[in-house]
Design a protein around this nucleic acid. Sequence first.
DNA 1: TATAATATTAAGTAATCACTTACTTACTCT
DNA 2: AGAGTAAGTAAGTGATTACTTAATATTATA
Lengths: 202, 202
Amino acid sequence: MSSEQIKISTRDKILESAIRLFAEKGFSGTTTREIAEKAGVNEALIFRYFSTKRDLYSAIIERKISEEPGFEYPLEAFKETRDDWLIFKSIAIRMFDCVEKDPCFIRLLYFSALEGHELSDMFFDTYVQYQRMLLSDYIERRISEGAFKNVNPVLAARAFIGMVINYILVQEIFGEKKRRKIKREEVADTFVKIFLEGIKNN
Amino acid sequence: MSSEQIKISTRDKILESAIRLFAEKGFSGTTTREIAEKAGVNEALIFRYFSTKRDLYSAIIERKISEEPGFEYPLEAFKETRDDWLIFKSIAIRMFDCVEKDPCFIRLLYFSALEGHELSDMFFDTYVQYQRMLLSDYIERRISEGAFKNVNPVLAARAFIGMVINYILVQEIFGEKKRRKIKREEVADTFVKIFLEGIKNN
DNA sequence: TATAATATTAAGTAATCACTTACTTACTCT
DNA sequence: AGAGTAAGTAAGTGATTACTTAATATTATA
């Protein structure tokens, strides 16, 4: 046998199928039996690796919180550059990327918030708050440099992130994904353009 | 007895408690027994008025779809006025109002979408699509009048609605409601300002 | 190969689920 | 008052839930 068989651990098989099911149907909507079936393992094994169903769910959220790099931004650029277009476009594109390569992610995030999981706040903070802070710091600096209008920087950051996230959410969660297809590039450019011209002085 | 006793019908008591519970915990997270307890009626009565739990859920969504006027906008204004500020601000304020007077609404909307209820598309269309269409038609006209930049009107409408909805969503669904309190007025003004100055010519 | 440790399984558990049944109470109309 | 209908209830139904147990299969180490 030339090809190495990469053995996926049982634990990982369980996690993988649980992620997909929890993302699809939420915590209450998913049964441990389904998870086991989809993972191709015996249901009892779930409870060998995770003490409860809720524990498995928590493990997933913790993993999602820690695995995503999320902070790949050129942090220095945020503190020094004046290339507004680059900053905002890279944030938008990164959000599109994030959802595209892991469609479960955003559903897990919103399900965990709606279902009131204890870790959902941390989940939220890690992603949304962090980006918002990065952006609002940048906006604040640009205001003090006289480049941006004097608006509440946090509100402005939320405005921009809101445009992008809501667009993504509607595509992913409501049926719109199939209906219309606008290129990410055009979406990002339009949003950045409207926002930047709205906030810039002159 | 001087005060008239207003008798709430059993059916309405069931609907009322079901709305609150489905909004709080979703469809799968809510049991018919809980609904009955909260409504103060016998569980079997639920099935006298609604043939299944899913039927009750559908009845709620249908009710939410039909009850909200939602279309109270001065439709003529959208077709004739050039008061951009009024148009956008009234949309934003209306969205804030809608959520404030019925906090269950937005949670039901997103829960039904995530849980994949068959009526969630109609739910979505009635509210989000409708407002988006109103707005994008207005934007389109203003572009043709030379007042707005030549952007994709649907994308622009989604940008604006996204700002507002996402702000609301974060307040209502993630824990932020308690943390910070920015006045609706300031939020709406900031969003409208950024958006309008971003899309206006000159 | 023998043994200890681990991984996996079938077959359970009690509790809870949505939903039903058989029955009683309350109200309406003549 | 009495018949007919609607509203309400207690006590169930079988199916399914998350989770357990005790026995077996597999692997690692000696």
